[in-house]
């Protein structure tokens, strides 16, 4: 079993500390959900783990199978098997999804080894069929003019193709309509396997009606204040974040 281990992590943007002493371990085969109110630092956590250069790690560590990710560039982390599904994925005008994914797959091949085009397309079509994605989709430019749902579809397809060992899905506050939500859920559920650890970040409980998490963590002001199983999400939905805040004096960690 492999694990993504976040130890006493502290992250700052500029001078303000956003993540304060956060610890969490995700093992392959598990799905964890992090919930929290706006501004609690959920997206910051995701981007800091992925290596966004604006986010400064001031303490603690992130280990993937014992290797310190913080010493690696964002592209190296990705090639080691870390995937981040972006809340607001960038447009890449003029570059088709197929070409983009091919470049990404190529970057994982050994130096000087050319990716076999037929193998690549066979795999791409297999994954598209798995996710019920139309063949014409990948000839469109990456995220250019995409609806919210199409962006999600594109992120999930990329995840399926790149076969990460750990995936973080940043779904916070993205105002997903129910269709987009189902796309994400269907994708994650199709890809769930003993070889994949998933961390889903969400503001609302409703996503967790479709993706049943093994663990739920509640994040407030840059730290995890409570952890539990899927029941915690329901309880939170019922009682609201204020209930957590009121009981957050002593963080409860699993």
């Amino acid at each position: 079993m492999q694990q993504l281990e976040i130890n006493n992590l502290r992250v700052a943007i500029g001078e303000s500390e956003i993540i304060r002493d956060l610890s969490l371990t995700v093992r392959t085969g598990e799905v964890h959900a992090i919930m929290g109110p706006n501004g609690s630092g959920k997206s910051t956590l995701a981007k800091a783990i992925a290596g966004q250069p604006d986010y400064r790690v001031t303490g603690g560590g992130v280990l993937m199978d014992g290797e310190n990710l913080l010493e690696l560039g964002p592209d190296e982390r990705a090639r080691r098997g870390l995937f981040l599904a972006f809340q607001y994925p960038s447009e890449i005008p003029g570059v088709t999804i197929a070409d983009f994914l091919r470049a990404a797959a190529q970057s994982r091949s050994p130096e000087g080894e050319e990716l076999e085009a037929t193998d690549y397309y066979a795999k791409l079509y297999e994954k598209m069929d798995l996710l019920d994605i139309d063949r014409s989709f990948t000839s469109r430019s990456v995220n250019e003019g995409f609806s919210g749902g199409e962006k999600k579809r594109s992120e999930i397809l990329q995840m399926a193709m790149l076969e990460p060992r750990f995936a973080i899905l940043d779904e916070t506050d993205s105002g997903l309509d129910i269709d987009a939500l189902k796309i994400v859920a269907h994708g994650v559920n199709s890809l769930r396997s003993p070889n994949l650890g998933v961390l889903v970040i969400t503001h609302y409980q409703r996503l967790l009606n479709y993706i049943i998490p093994d663990f739920v963590h509640v994040m407030v002001q840059g730290r995890i204040v409570r952890s539990g199983d899927k029941e915690l999400a329901l309880e939170l939905e019922e009682k609201g974040y204020d209930w957590i805040r009121d009981h957050a004096e002593e963080p409860v960690l699993v």
Binding site: G51, D75, P89, P93, A104
Partner: peptide, 28 residues
Amino acid sequence: SAEQIFYMQQRGLSEGQAMSLSVNGFVN
């Protein structure tokens, strides 16, 4: 943009590869 480059790096491309893919897309 820096976000665009980071997005591509997160998929495994080096900074140089990300730049060159963006530029190739621009002239494609």
